[in-house]
């Protein structure tokens, strides 16, 4: 339907204009304090209902010439007006600050931390944060001066994820008005491909580049030969703990193994391409996680880029980043 297409086009255009206007009005910053030019305020549906009741009362008061009914009408009108100030005040002056973010995998949730804080004795109540598909969070700043909200946003696409503006709204205290703002803290996070399990032999069949030749140079933190014992550190894999020694009451110790530098597995995107690039990246992601967990020495090759074989957390993250940021067009 061409008309429909036109409509979407207009909608898109409008969204673009609005977003450009917002960028000018509430520029991106990692610390935003809401002031009058950043806050919008309008009556809610309840507010309109309230006005209807007010009008009904006014007509009743006039017709029955009843001063108290009229007085009540005027009180409601004042309540309506005063609630504008209260609702506006409940956003004005709140400071939003970006906290740390955690990378995540497609299909999982990216986690962002947003800190709301207040200054002085002003109290804020029931400020609602809505951010894309995140479950809305309601935040009070009554007894504490700041509150950090952990926002979990479901992610669907690999790469750099920029969730855009947070919609901040409050209807406190009477719900007759809503004050809102769109806050962009400029936060973003990296989204890794979704790990997809595949049988290693399958991958192997498809010409995974594996070098199984036993090397000569031992590399610590491998998993081939028993090397010795050291004191348990938080995060050591459970199956490397020397349980027998623990049972004898000698405390927790971790068995260390050595690997050999030459025994390197190369994970190569080119070998898993027939299911498509994304599928391939997902499979590679799975094995990156798997090998990192077991301490296997491996290297990664995606397109023209390469991560030299290695082990450890830093290596894992480097590989995941490569997978996340792989751009087919560039390579």
């Amino acid at each position: 339907m061409p008309q429909f297409a036109l409509w979407t086009k207009i909608k898109k255009k409008r969204a673009k204009i609005v977003s450009a206007w917002l960028d000018k009005r509430i520029p991106v910053s990692d610390r935003i304090t809401l002031s009058h030019q950043k806050i919008f305020i309008l009556p809610t549906q309840q507010g309109f209902n309230f006005v209807l009741v007010m009008i009904a009362l006014f007509i009743g008061g006039v017709n029955y010439q009843n001063s108290l009914v009229l007085g009540m009408t005027f009180l409601l009108a004042s309540l309506f007006m005063v609630s504008i100030l209260h609702t506006f005040r409940n956003l004005s002056g709140v400071c939003f600050q970006a906290g740390h973010t955690e990378a995540s995998f497609v299909g999982d949730f990216a986690s962002f931390h947003v800190t709301l804080s207040r200054e002085g004795e002003r109290i804020y109540e029931a400020i609602q944060l809505e951010w894309r598909d995140c479950v809305p969070q309601v935040i009070d700043l009554i007894d504490e001066t700041e509150h950090t909200a952990r926002m979990l946003l479901p992610v669907t696409n690999r790469g750099i994820y920029n969730p855009g503006r947070i919609y901040v709204e409050t209807r406190y205290p009477l719900g007759l008005f809503k004050a809102w703002s769109w806050v962009d803290l400029g936060v973003q996070c990296l989204v890794y491909p979704e790990p997809k399990k595949s049988v290693f032999t399958d991958i192997n069949k498809h010409n995974f580049n594996i070098n199984r030749d036993a090397g000569k140079i031992p590399v610590p933190e491998g998993n081939d030969d028993f090397d010795g014992l050291r004191k348990y550190k938080l995060g050591d894999p459970l199956r490397q703990i020397d349980w027998k020694a623990y049972a004898r009451g000698r405390g927790l110790h971790t068995k260390t193994f050595v690997g050999y530098a030459d025994e390197t597995i190369w994970l190569d995107l080119d070998c898993v391409l027939e299911q498509g690039v994304e599928e391939g990246l997902s499979r590679l992601c799975y094995w990156v996680l798997k090998f990192s967990e077991s301490g296997q020495n491996f290297g990664l090759r995606v397109g023209h880029e390469e991560v030299l074989p290695g082990v450890g957390r830093a290596h894992k993250i480097k590989c995941l980043e490569k997978l996340a940021l792989f751009d087919r067009n560039k390579n």
Partner: peptide
């Protein structure tokens, strides 16, 4: 009316 607009935990 205020209670309706306060957070559930209040």
């Amino acid at each position: 009316l205020i209670g309706l607009n306060q957070s559930q935990s209040h």
